[in-house]
Amino acid sequence: MYEDRLSPRELEIARAYALGDTYHRIAERLCIAPSTVRTHLAAIYRKLEVSSKLELHKMLDGATPNRKSQSEQAEIISELALSLEEAISRERALSEVLRIISGSEGRINEVIAALLGYALELCDAEFGLLLEYKAQKGFRASHTKGIPRAFHEWWVEKGDYQPNPQTAIGRVEADHDVVNILDVRAEELFQTDDPLRYATATLGGARSFTAIPMLAGKRLIGAFTIYRQQLRPFDEKTVQLARMFADQSVIAIENARMMSELRTTIEQPDRHSTVV
């Protein structure tokens, strides 16, 4: 019986998933991360030797599983192993945000640099920027990682930058939503003289690109912009996880800012004190 092969938590997740619940709904109900749900499902698939939600549903309904050939079984095992490793890696990156939040002590620059590094790890990318946003001023590249020197210097020279509404961060500013571009050179904007798109594609060498907003409630405070120099688009799963990471990162940044302000207040001498 399949019940003997699964823990009570795995049984609960397996039944919910087989009945159509999403990772997020299961996670909310069980108070765990969606990536943890996926980790459990990878283990469930491995233990029950199933390779799809349909097979899982049939087994939970009492059907006898079809016997698979050795090659099919090896293929499933290898895929599950890779999926499990990916899930563990993403779970580690997301949990790292919580560690950064608890240990920031107001070191805002260290927090932002660490968050950008983990965002790149999460998205399997080498090049990225964390752009801070202020209304009426635009975006400023507060931190960069891995980008070519010429592209970094372009952002330093620009300082606060108001983007064209057709650029990725221009769309983020307007819609507060993720922008995922398969190929920055294939868009019509690349054929114009837009300075940001030129800098991104030519100085930065970007091809596949995603911009993920950082929102404090409904207020835009910044964006992760992450890219690959190869034509290798970011899939929907990666972008969804990156957005979850960005939401958690806002908490880390806001917490570090409050700690920094509190520290500054405490360290300032009492202006009203008098020397006796």
Rank of each mutant, 00 (worst) to 15 (best):
E110C: 05
G103E: 06
S102Y: 09
L129E: 00
E132V: 08
A141S: 05
E132A: 04
E132Q: 04
A81R: 14
S89M: 11
E105C: 08
G106I: 03
S78Q: 15
L82D: 12
L130M: 05
I112H: 09
G128V: 00
L98I: 09
I112W: 10
E126W: 08
S78Y: 14
I112Q: 12
L120M: 07
L129M: 08
G106Q: 07
R90A: 14
F139S: 01
R107T: 03
L115H: 04
A81L: 10
A113N: 13
N109I: 04
F139Y: 09
A119E: 00
N109D: 05
A81P: 03
E91V: 08
F127T: 04
A113I: 02
G138P: 04
R90T: 13
E75R: 15
N109Q: 07
L131I: 09
L98V: 10
L84D: 14
S142H: 08
A87H: 06
I88Q: 15
F127H: 10
Y118F: 09
E91P: 07
L116M: 01
L94W: 12
I88E: 12
I77F: 12
S83E: 14
F127W: 04
I112K: 15
K137R: 13
R99F: 08
F127A: 02
G128R: 03
A135G: 11
Q136N: 14
A125C: 06
E79A: 15
S102T: 10
N109Y: 06
G103L: 06
L115W: 01
G117M: 02
E110L: 11
A119R: 03
I88A: 10
Y133R: 10
S102C: 08
I77N: 12
V111N: 04
E86T: 06
A135C: 10
R107W: 01
D124Y: 07
I101V: 07
E105Y: 10
A135W: 14
S83R: 13
E85R: 15
V111S: 01
E85D: 15
